[in-house]
Amino acid sequence: MTMGKTDMSERPRTESSIFVGTDVGSSRTKVAVVNPDKELIGYSIEKSGTDFTATADACLATALRMAGTNQSNIKAAVSTGYGRNNVTCADSTKTEIGCHAKGCFYYFPQAITVIDIGGQDNKIIKLDDHGHRTGFKMNRKCAAGTGAFLEEMALRLDIPIDDLNDLAPKSTEMVKLGSFCTVFSATEVLENIRNGKRVEDIVKGIYFSVVKRIMEMDSFTEVVVMTGGVTANNPYIVTLTEELIGRSILVPEHPQLTGALGAALFALENNCS
């Protein structure tokens, strides 16, 4: 796994021109603030909750504090994600596909396939070496292969979702789950518990199921980048995907933030054009 990094060490203390990207996902809201040099100078991630506008405002306040600046310095702002129309500070919107592509290309400027695993949807986006999209896929209608699937399975196993990542590598004999459907998978999990299977082996099987769903969506080009909340909170899923595709995967420094960062970069571009 290779990490793309942003260098935040040399930036000046106060920025007088800033560009904001807000990604309101079904599960988390993310804000990224960049300066005219395209440097990420502030960010924030919070649970989206039910009041998207309030969450986006709160997130923005945190990110601005981190950037050492304030709202009056915002030159342009773009919102994306499920709640993109609920963001007070935004003057335009872009799709999450476009923003993730932009954010990933910023870290890895080459032809890439982006796998983004979010709370309720997955995306696979293919970019050429100019960063132009050549195609994309979103998951169909259900939760299979998303963060929601992991949450449901953790619930069935009665363990905190944050524990999954450490349990899976301890598996010695993975339990394969056969079903597409989250509810049927939950039944399979219960059945395996009843049959005395080890939790570690079931958890690995759960991750395996997520990766399989992703691999069914599209083919991958040579260089693969993984992003999204599930990737950020479950680095094991990257390891497992690497194992399955037989090559190393690139992960940006803030995997959950690429959409917001892409939105901020669009804001910067819009302002300059």
Binding site: Y82, T95, E96, I97, G98, D121, H132, T134, M138
Partner: peptide
Amino acid sequence: LVSDEQMKTNVEAFIEQLEER
């Protein structure tokens, strides 16, 4: 069997893709 939000995002992203070309 229809997710309006999914369809909308897909269509918008597709048009963005055409724009890039």
